Deep mutational scan, measured.
Amino acid sequence: MQRVNMIMAESPGLITICLLGYLLSAECTVFLDHENANKILNRPKRYNSGKLEEFVQGNLERECMEEKCSFEEAREVFENTERTTEFWKQYVDGDQCESNPCLNGGSCKDDINSYECWCPFGFEGKNCELDVTCNIKNGRCEQFCKNSADNKVVCSCTEGYRLAENQKSCEPAVPFPCGRVSVSQTSKLTRAETVFPDVDYVNSTEAETILDNITQSTQSFNDFTRVVGGEDAKPGQFPWQVVLNGKVDAFCGGSIVNEKWIVTAAHCVETGVKITVVAGEHNIEETEHTEQKRNVIRIIPHHNYNAAINKYNHDIALLELDEPLVLNSYVTPICIADKEYTNIFLKFGSGYVSGWGRVFHKGRSALVLQYLRVPLVDRATCLRSTKFTIYNNMFCAGFHEGGRDSCQGDSGGPHVTEVEGTSFLTGIISWGEECAMKGKYGIYTKVSRYVNWIKEKTKLT
């Protein structure tokens, strides 16, 4: 034993070699072989497995989906700052455009905790909710729209109204504003409101030439003092309507412009014939205590009207009353817009006519005020429907199939267009061939041609 100890002390290297040989010859039971080890760690190889990531292109799944990435790591994937920024906006807080917040056709661009709407022409605001041009839906104005110097929408209202708090709607500024039905039992019968379409306001006024200088022999019209197929109006439903009495009662109609003036057809009036105007009328054979009678003290036909040349060209006249009318729910003026808007309103496509005229061709006159909704007829169809001249200051309205029309005794009465609950004068009943005849239409004086003249002559002093 002493000898062994001496050998170990003198030859430590020998001992180490012996131990190493023993270990190498022993069977290893701690580690699995290569094949079995792979069965336990069965993990798919990654895209760049075996390579240094710093030297390969980034992978979106590896960089940002398996674990949260930084902007720089995302930049490695896209290799483009702009594309990385677009991805980053949604990656950080989701897609803010998912709810489609942009209105009126706006395009949404996502941002971090926010979004941006790219608005089409005519709109602005956070969600493109603000109209900035009158060309689109009248700028959301209830009545009139004008573009300011910086191309912003400025709404306005006709006389007797003021802008509401929203700067879009119009509200009454006087007790009985024009064009409004205020009798409670008839307010439910107000005709369907007309909503502004998209309009090209630059070209809204037709490029028409008034044929002022045409000389033409007097034409022989049949029954051209021209509501057939209409309905009984309720008291106060058309408070701007008046009836004219002269040699015979209810020979023509008219509309209240203001307390002192009536507008009617020029062919209705004769110099030297006494005319009485009755406002607030409903049943011409009954006294309903809503009527107001006034005498006409002055007749002003349009300066281009000449019955000797043509009885229905420039067929418009103004009547001055001896005493002002007292405005109330049964006696209310009709609204008159400017030339541009009167023309736009007419193009809405349908209007209402009213009167006490004959209820059928050569038949009896109506006792109760009649009204009828009539569609506008395109000019080409209008011209083809008659052998008589249709001037540019006239328009056609009615039904091709016949059966409904204005008729004798309705002449001078109103053709009105309702705009968001307020009625505007767009025409004056003038003439036609018979009444409600198939293929024939009622012919009306186009008020847009005469609004400046009306307003100039009827100013209240």
Results as ranks from 00 to 15, higher is better:
S411W: 13
D150F: 09
K457M: 15
L19Y: 06
T386A: 11
K146H: 06
V153C: 04
D405F: 11
D110S: 15
H282P: 06
G254V: 01
D315V: 01
A266E: 01
F399I: 12
T84I: 04
R294W: 01
F395V: 02
S107Y: 05
K247T: 12
E61A: 09
E286S: 11
Y201D: 10
H415D: 01
W240N: 00
S25F: 14
T271L: 14
A164V: 05
N283C: 05
E86Y: 06
Y441C: 03
E72I: 15
I316H: 01
S184E: 11
C28L: 02
L14A: 07
N245G: 06
Q216D: 12
F345R: 00
E35C: 04
V56R: 06
V377N: 02
V269T: 06
V174I: 08
V451W: 02
I309N: 13
E73N: 10
C382P: 02
T84L: 06
C117N: 00
T194Q: 13
C69E: 04
D338R: 04
P101I: 03
C396H: 02
R449A: 15
I210P: 07
S49N: 14
I136K: 09
I300A: 03
G355N: 07
G253I: 12
E401C: 05
K457N: 15
T218Q: 08
E76P: 15
T81D: 10
S169F: 06
C102Y: 00
E116H: 02
T445N: 04
T186F: 14
W118E: 02
P172K: 06
F360C: 10
E288L: 06
R162K: 08
R358Q: 12
N113M: 09
G21T: 15
T209L: 13
Y341V: 05
W356R: 09
E142L: 04
L244H: 03
C119D: 01
D33M: 10
V416A: 09
E53T: 09
E281D: 13
A233M: 08
V377F: 02
R75I: 10
H314M: 02
P101Y: 02
E231M: 12
G432D: 09
T342R: 00
K137V: 10
R180G: 03
Q216G: 06
C268T: 00
S329N: 14
N328T: 09
E82N: 09
P44D: 14
Y450C: 01
L327P: 04
T84Q: 08
Q143H: 11
P177D: 00
R226F: 07
V154T: 10
A233E: 05
N166M: 02
E76V: 15
T186M: 14
Y371G: 14
I112R: 12
E418T: 06
V243M: 05
A317Y: 00
Q143M: 07
L60G: 15
F424D: 01
Q237Y: 11
C108G: 00
K311F: 05
Y22E: 03
E27N: 06
L325Q: 00
R379E: 08
G427W: 00
Y312G: 04
E54Y: 07
T381S: 05
S217P: 12
M6I: 05
E124S: 04
C117A: 00
N138Y: 06
K440Y: 07
S217Q: 13
S255Q: 03
G160Y: 02
E129R: 02
D315Y: 01
S70R: 10
G363M: 08
K339F: 09
G254S: 00
V181E: 07
F238E: 01
M65K: 09
G105Y: 03
K109W: 04
P239M: 01
V228T: 13
K459V: 12
K188Q: 11
N38F: 07
N59M: 06
D200P: 14
E142W: 04
A380K: 12
V451H: 03
S169P: 01
E420N: 09
T389M: 07
V199A: 05
I214Q: 14
R294I: 02
S329R: 11
P44H: 07
C141D: 00
E53I: 08
V278A: 05
E54I: 08
V278R: 07
E72R: 13
E116K: 02
I390K: 06
G272R: 12
C407E: 03
C157R: 01
S70L: 09
Q237R: 05
S423G: 09
T194F: 11
L369E: 06
C155W: 01
E340T: 11
W431P: 06
L460H: 09
L321H: 00
G439W: 03
N343W: 03
L244N: 01
E66R: 05
Y305Q: 02
D249T: 15
S156C: 04
I299P: 02
E35Q: 12
T445H: 05
C382H: 02
E82T: 10
R62A: 13
T332I: 08
C155A: 01
D110H: 09
G272L: 05
S204M: 14
G363P: 11
E53L: 05
S406G: 12
I316E: 00
R358A: 09
L52N: 15
G230S: 11
